[in-house]
């Protein structure tokens, strides 16, 4: 048993909130630079150059890349040989979010009640997915999620007969219908299988995979490639002004499902594809 005081979780989460909002991952940056080189539309190219300039300003000035600093979504892998001390695990994470969003001058974008719509004032509560895993460490991934791209996401309970063609049609159409709303270029997270809620969750998890990485299963690796090509033929382009670069990547995650079910989820992610992780 390894004892970990929850105050360590609070300080780690606080730092993740700020780092994720100020520094874009190298994988995403690299792909944006590549798209800039390749973009044929002059307006699209200009948009990408401003996105690149924005990334530099955020890094240098330590200010958020986007004013929508997101809903704090966390994926935690908790080692089963860890004993947490010093307080409540969930509250420790929320306290980290509270401190990070305050000290980082990040926007508070959470309303406590979805109908009453009063701002919670400190960007809490966080959304926390916890997996118990072997070992005596805690891995925390924080992915602040913007509303613009989240709103263009969808879960569809398809008939198993729809097959892979059904998936392709749904994913490409979802991107087309989203237009400029999710701030393209986007990363498209696709969940296939599971149950209604699991499917959405794995679509979100797919967004965490490094851009440029290849799906371990060659069948899905090919499908990702095909979908990316199809999406980039739509012509939406950077910010929807027309162009070749609509998506930076398509990431698929699959899960076993019920004999009667075929859920497919698309989680849209803007080019501000933020996530940072830490191991305690």
């Amino acid at each position: 048993m390894r004892e970990i005081d929850v105050s360590g979780i609070t300080s780690a989460v606080k730092k993740l909130c700020m780092d994720a909002n100020f520094y874009l991952g190298d994988d995403v940056k690299k792909r944006i630079y590549e798209c800039y080189e390749k973009e044929e539309s002059p307006t699209g190219k200009d948009v990408l150059s401003q996105i690149i300039e924005n990334i530099k300003i955020s890094e240098n000035d330590e200010v958020p890349l986007c004013q929508d600093t997101g809903y704090a979504v966390l994926f935690v892998e908790l080692g089963q040989d860890v004993r947490l001390t010093g307080g409540d695990f969930t509250e420790a994470i929320n306290e980290g979010v509270r401190q990070g969003y305050k000290e980082g001058y990040l926007r508070k974008s959470v309303v406590t009640d979805p109908l009453e719509r009063k701002n919670s004032g400190d960007n809490t509560p966080a959304i926390i997915y916890t997996d118990i895993v072997p070992g005596d460490k805690i891995k925390i991934i924080l992915a602040p999620k913007g509303g613009g791209s989240e709103n263009m996401s969808e879960v569809k309970m398809m008939a198993p007969a729809a097959g892979v063609e059904g998936v392709k049609e749904f994913v490409v159409d979802r991107v087309l219908r989203s237009g400029a709303n999710p701030c393209p270029p986007v990363i498209v997270g696709v969940g296939i299988g599971g149950t209604f809620e699991k499917c959405a969750q794995i679509a979100k998890k797919a967004l965490l995979r490094p851009v440029g990485s290849v799906h371990p299963n060659p069948y899905y690796a090919d499908l990702e490639k095909e979908l990316l090509e199809k999406i980039n033929k739509l012509g939406i382009g950077p910010q929807g002004f027309g162009g070749r670069c609509t998506a930076l990547a398509v990431h698929i995650e699959v899960h076993p499902c019920h004999i009667a079910s075929f859920p497919v989820a698309v989680n849209m992610q803007c080019h501000v594809a933020r996530h940072k992780e830490v191991i305690i």
Partner: peptide, 10 residues
């Protein structure tokens, strides 16, 4: 249209 996600520049 302004550029979504280029808010530090904005």
């Amino acid at each position: 249209g302004a550029i979504g996600g280029a808010a530090a520049l904005g």
